[in-house]
Design a protein around this nucleic acid. Structure first.
Lengths: 259, 259
DNA sequence: AAATTTTTGAATAATTTATTCGTAATTCGA
DNA sequence: TCGAATTACGAATAAATTATTCAAAAATTT
């Protein structure tokens, strides 16, 4: 049972010194952490033996047990009362945790927007594809590279044309059991839409991961995954966008791993 | 700092008996609650004084301090597993949210382990470097590429030798106002340590991002950043590891953006 | 292989915790 | 209000736990 609550509940039935101890502990819970029984006794102005007897009266073996119980009770309350999540991603000051906050928000939105059928479909499509072509807009090149790398590591035949000069040629060589993955931001890039259309002419399945809005690339796809952008300044927004793209891709990869 | 993580990280540099103690505590954390130093000693099969010395080696005043720290650390870990969080990363069933859970845990640990001074130092070092060489072990190649790409986008002179055949040559051409970034998993890769040493001979600053343990690459660095690995099966662990590496790198990038 | 350092545990010192016991305070019943 | 019974309290001390010392053993370096 919660030790601090017990203390408050029993307060009325306690003797003078015991009440002094209870009050002190309730007021200075965090101090107890580094107090020995005699230090506590001194702080409260009672004898060391009274501290021990108090502990036993509350039902503990002795002072160390009480101390641990108080600590447990205190820590538990801290977690329960914690409204925001700042603690969970580290000390407030760390550059990592500020970013962590924003990231969490974007990821949350991104996770929510993607229907699990589309995700499963994407995983299934990757798994059953003979070859996979990855195409990306300028801002998503690094993400595309990452995806390609991971696919290759998993034993999928994946190709990404860094420069983009060859992507039309490559698309022309795809067959109907292949897959085209399009990664882009706004989804309006003409060349990507062009690649998608050419591929579809050959019966190729198209998977897109774009910003969550009405966009050409997404419309011309069979499987549509989205990223919900943040509302920060441009540079940070791009960072968070890529981060969310990566998260979706990691989701796909881990899905492929499980299979 | 998280006591159980510290224990795991230091495991390699501990002596036989100390390792026995660490392993026992890591495996039977909850037992510690009601163990005295000599009970623990008996359970593990070492002397009581060894327990005390172990506590002190980890940086605590003595056994009671260690015990409290372990307890704190254990209770803290519960936060990551808290159901409460499932809400924040979407519906429980989605493939993305399951991954999100694990990711959150790894990221949390990673955020906690990196001291903000090291992060600030890293950001400062990147900002003031003339040229930046990125070197990576096989498993971190895709992350290294990502980092290089982002650095270039920010206007930093960054080079990454994909194959690794040229990295020694490149390191030799670095000057004392340059920076070497090492990304690796276990940190034991000889060629990377070699590159680090060569670079340091020229007075180059070395920044490492490695697994959080006692490792050669980290030791030979001026600025040390870490990733706390998960305890999943190998494939997923690698995925989560890269993900956490990316998070740290995104932290650096966003720091550079703010500057 | 010798020298140095590190590790280890038995013995013991120091500290902390628990109990005993006598006195003081409080409660209860007339 | 007074004394008897009960309870509270703390000084002294016992018991237990924790920390240190030191010498032997093991590991590491030279």
């Amino acid at each position: 049972m919660n030790c601090l609550l017990k203390m408050r509940a029993m307060r009325e039935q306690l003797s003078v010194n015991e009440r002094k101890l209870a009050d002190f502990i309730l007021d200075n819970t965090q101090l107890l952490r580094d107090y020995s029984s005699s230090q506590l006794a001194d702080a409260v102005g009672v004898s060391q033996s009274s501290v021990v007897k108090f502990s036993q009266k509350l039902g503990y073996r002795g002072y160390p047990s009480l101390k641990l119980a108080v600590y447990e009770s205190y820590a538990g309350a801290g977690i329960a009362n914690d409204e925001d999540h700042s603690r969970h991603l580290g000390q407030a000051n760390s550059p990592l945790s500020t970013l962590g906050q924003k990231k969490l928000e974007v990821l949350e939105n991104t996770v929510n927007i993607n229907e699990s059928e589309q995700l499963s479909a994407a995983i299934q499509a990757i798994r059953s594809a003979r070859c996979i072509q990855v195409s990306a807009c300028a801002g998503s090149v690094s993400v595309a590279r990452y995806l390609t790398h991971q696919l290759l590591e998993l034993g999928c035949w994946a190709v990404f044309d860094e420069g983009g000069q060859l992507q039309h040629k490559i698309a022309d060589s795809l067959r109907d059991d292949d897959l085209l993955c399009i990664l882009c931001d706004f989804g309006g890039e003409e060349s990507l839409v062009e690649v998608a259309n050419r591929a579809r002419e050959h019966g190729v399945k198209v998977l897109s991961l774009t910003r969550y809005n009405y966009n050409a690339a997404s419309i011309h796809s069979d499987i549509r995954l989205y990223v919900v952008p943040s509302e920060d300044d441009e540079a940070l927004q791009r960072l968070l966008f890529r981060s969310a793209q990566l998260h979706v891709i990691e989701g796909l990869i881990s899905g492929l791993l499980e299979g």
